[in-house]
């Protein structure tokens, strides 16, 4: 495929049905080691469904997933999953939320908290250790969620529209921070978004899903923009606009189709 590296996740002929409803049909793609890949597609096309399949939370109706060239059974232990919805434990402070994965792995509480403190600082939340989730803003909660996952150092990161609820400024800020964190150790990332601009600005490759039901993979675009990038500046370059236009040409039709079906 387009990626010369070794494969981290490989989906082959994934079909998911909920009763009579076919959400995604025969989807195959691959995410290379250290590769940053986006999935875009109109709402309800099955993006979250695909992430659940990769995470091992949802068993596909047919098809196969391989993670680091091994068939994935049960929960995918290579994966950190940042959910689309709020998923922090509301009864734990930010610090304990970040520490919880280590606690689950029997790391002594003291040490887990120590590391959690460092991770909170890394995502820019120093001083918010003792806040409960309901006392944090949407963007802060996403940061805690990110730290909660990154502290476990997963090889593969699944992110489901992490920034879609944020205002543009916060969003650019968080996108840049994400790139900075990713640059440190280059995890494989599968990043779901509605927003094509975000997808192009962040990733190495963009996968386009068709409108549901029975969404298929419509296209696959390599993003030849150099790194490190600044998400706000790169949007102004000619190359960005050219790639964006090319993908939008395909995506637009699907969004209109989805719109026509649902409204």
């Amino acid at each position: 495929m387009t990626n010369p590296n070794k494969s981290a996740v490989q989906l082959e002929g994934i079909t998911v049905r909920f009763g009579d409803y076919t959400a995604v049909e025969n989807v195959s793609f691959e995410v290379g080691e250290g590769e940053f890949v986006a999935i875009v597609g109109p709402t309800g096309c099955g993006k979250s469904t695909l992430l659940s399949v990769v995470a091992g939370l949802l068993l596909p109706t047919s098809g196969e997933i391989r993670t680091f060239n091994e068939a994935t059974k049960g929960l995918n232990r290579w994966v950190g999953y940042l959910f689309q919805q709020d998923a922090l434990l509301p009864w734990k402070t930010a610090l304990d939320n970040v520490a919880i994965g280590l606690i689950f792995r029997q790391v002594p509480t003291q040490e887990a908290r120590q590391q959690a403190q460092e991770w909170l600082a890394k995502v820019g939340l120093k001083g918010f250790e003792n806040y409960y989730p309901h006392q944090l803003s949407g963007g802060m909660k996403k940061r805690v969620g990110l730290a909660q996952i990154l502290i476990l150092n997963p090889k593969i990161l699944l992110m489901d529209e992490p920034f879609s609820a944020l205002d543009v400024q916060t969003r650019n800020l968080m996108e840049n921070e994400l790139l900075r964190l990713w640059q440190e150790d280059r995890k494989s990332v599968l990043f779901v978004t509605h927003d094509l601009e975000e997808a192009v600005a962040l990733t190495d490759r963009v996968l386009v899903l068709s409108a549901g039901p029975a969404s298929k993979l419509m296209g696959e675009f390599t993003i030849p923009l150099s790194r490190p990038r600044d998400v706000a500046e790169i949007r102004l370059t000619d190359k960005f606009l050219e790639i964006h236009r090319e993908i939008w040409h395909i995506l637009r039709g699907e969004v209109l189709k989805s719109y026509a079906q649902n409204f």
Partner: peptide
């Protein structure tokens, strides 16, 4: 269910799920 799924992805065992979730 999302909080539950998150805890499971973070590696919680059955007894840990009971205690922490």
């Amino acid at each position: 269910p999302v909080i539950l799924a998150n805890a499971r992805m973070l590696g919680a065992s059955r007894s840990q799920l009971l205690r922490h979730v």
